[in-house]
Write a protein that binds this DNA or RNA. Structure first.
Lengths: 113, 113
DNA sequence: TGAAGCTACCTTGCGGTGCAAGGTACCATG
DNA sequence: CATGGTACCTTGCACCGCAAGGTAGCTTCA
């Protein structure tokens, strides 16, 4: 893997799952759709090999529910919805993220140049 | 480990090493000093078990150099200095980080509330 | 002088998570 | 009925933060 890709990979850790939660909060989604939308964000582009295990994990800890739904064309889709505890986790992340981001900004000196 | 700690742990990934580089850029440091300074930052507090392997890694990839130096009181210290390629890596991270941070802000909806 | 305590360094083994690679099955189209 | 697209999922690996544990030098003070 290239250095640049590896940098993004590390950065993704810990935020990716909450980006997925936020995406589902806005609108119920299915797996392939999530992969596609994240693919549009350079810093968060990822693959099915990441997303499907991640979605299983989020279901297992009770932050997402899912139900099967027919597709207008193609195989059935598993749509995900945010649970109450998922909503709470997302809220907690939002405050944690703001504080984390500010700390990093200060330490690496973003805004000084 | 508590949920809150685990959240920070994941977030640290990929940024911690650059916070260390930035710290060394500002002023040459030794291991214990770095642990202490990071300890003052809630989101980045960590332990020797994280920092020493990390410093070895940064030396191995050539982003840091080190030299031993007597302590005014206590055992000798290994002081780290930033190499040219370390400086370049840090510069690259700074631009990558800004873009990453903005993407996450937008996706999780920071600034909308 | 020698024992207790601090400082500073380092290693081992585990756990979590992103990813490449590979696989199954359903549907549409010609 | 074969081909290709869509959608799901799993296996095994690599990386990195961390808890726990360990070595050794220096200082202090009885």
């Amino acid at each position: 893997m290239s250095d640049a890709a590896q940098l993004s990979t590390s950065l993704r850790r810990g935020t990716l799952e909450f980006c997925v939660l936020a995406m589902v909060e806005r609108e119920d989604c299915y797996g392939t759709e999530i992969v596609r939308r994240l693919g549009a964000e350079r810093s968060l582009a990822t693959t099915e090999g990441t997303i499907y295990p991640l979605l299983s994990r989020l279901r297992r800890v009770g932050w997402l529910n899912s139900e099967w739904s027919e597709s207008p064309s193609g195989p059935p889709r598993r749509y995900y919805t945010l649970t109450d505890s998922g909503r709470a986790a997302l809220a907690h992340f939002r405050t944690e993220w703001v504080s984390f981001r500010q700390t990093v900004d200060r330490l690496v000196g973003i805004g000084e140049q």
